[in-house]
């Protein structure tokens, strides 16, 4: 089902190539040093941080009103 690596280029390949230029390769390589469990823990930590920030902003906005 997953196509062969030598598939024909499609119309979105040019777009994806442009995005590839801006990808932080260092960050990707850091991720590859982690186990699957560590990678998911990293994601979970980020989600928790994002939620904390959202809560803080909401609280700050409520305080201003």
């Amino acid at each position: 089902m997953a196509p062969q690596r030598t598939r024909e280029r499609s119309s979105i390949d040019d777009i994806i190539d442009v995005y590839k230029k801006d990808v932080d390769l260092g960050l990707l390589l850091e991720g590859l040093k982690l186990t699957v469990e560590q990678r998911l823990d990293r994601l979970a930590s980020f989600i928790e941080l994002a939620e904390e920030l959202r809560s803080s902003v909401r609280a700050a906005k409520s305080a201003k009103v």
Binding site: M1, A2, S10, I12, Y19, L25, L28, L29
Partner: peptide, 28 residues
């Protein structure tokens, strides 16, 4: 490989950046 294929099939512009990243991950 299949994850990349799924995202390519979905064809959503918001996934283009993710596809780029995943393909570079695969290369690495």
């Amino acid at each position: 490989d299949t994850l990349i294929h799924l995202k390519r099939t979905a064809g959503r512009p918001k996934d283009f950046e993710a596809i780029a990243e995943l393909e570079l991950l695969r290369d690495a």
